[in-house]
């Protein structure tokens, strides 16, 4: 099967006060549709940088990035914004919900930038909120939700555009084990329904929720392996 995303010798160099730091050293790999990949590595290994480039939030210094065979490294800012809106869903460690608006308003936000009429986006947002189990919280202000609820709302927001791929950067990092388990379980369920999911984590127990693990060390892929003993997460059974 053709990969959904593919990179060729991706390199990212940060310049800070004249000092150059290389975060990625010629990373080449691919992810196929329907995969559940964990990008794993210690702090400072370049995994978040990789995810930001894959998620079109940042550009590589050199190398090539193909998304559905499109050369995204040549795209303009606005073209990348459209890709983010139509093809990609993000889940962040810090949830990144707008605290002063309601859950449903947060969830429908990507559709606002797609120009979907209010009635339609409200209906779709309501379905997503129900899917992540927050049906009774849609009118709550985002700031009133618990950490786990916030992350589920963020997942609903990531799913609302029916993206080709979901990138989750340390999605359980700010959650207790119970809430973290519920979030991982949600990802596994979504993956079983065909969604492509990429999780960035430094925790091996989180990585084992996926089917494949890319180990990143010092900006390079150290190991690319299938998960042999995949941890099937259930909200009761999740533990470190």
């Amino acid at each position: 099967m053709e990969p959904l995303i593919r990179t060729e010798k991706l390199e990212k160099v940060y310049k800070n006060d004249g000092v150059e730091t290389t975060a990625l050293h010629g990373v080449t790999f691919g992810i196929r549709r329907g995969e559940f990949v964990a990008i794993m590595g210690p702090s400072g290994s370049g995994k978040s940088t990789l995810m930001q480039i894959l998620g079109c939030l940042d550009r590589p210094t050199s190398g090539e990035y193909f998304f559905e065979d499109k050369e995204l490294h040549t795209y303009t800012d606005d073209e990348l914004a459209r890709i983010r809106n139509e093809k990609i869903g993000f889940v962040f460690q810090a949830f990144n919900l707008l605290p002063r608006i309601s859950v449903i308003e947060n969830v429908e936000l990507p559709l606002v930038y797609r120009g979907v009429p209010p009635k339609e986006r409200r209906e779709r947002a309501r379905r997503m909120i129900y899917l992540v189990g927050l049906g009774d919280r849609e009118d709550y202000r985002a700031s009133r939700l618990s950490g786990g609820q916030k992350q589920r709302a963020a997942i609903a927001r990531a799913l609302i555009t029916t993206p080709e791929i979901i990138f989750a950067d340390e999605p359980t990092g700010n959650l207790d084990s119970m809430s973290g388990g519920m979030v991982l379980e949600l990802f596994q369920n979504l993956n079983e329904k065909g969604n492509t999911i990429v999780i960035v984590t430094h925790e091996s127990y989180v990585a084992k929720a996926g089917k494949r693990v890319l180990h990143i060390v010092d900006g390079e892929i150290d190991k690319d392996e299938e998960v042999e003993e995949r941890r099937v997460i259930s909200r009761e059974g999740f533990s470190k």
Partner: peptide, 9 residues
């Protein structure tokens, strides 16, 4: 966040 969700410049 808005940009990550698809907002253009």
């Amino acid at each position: 966040l808005r940009k990550s969700l698809g907002a253009t410049n």
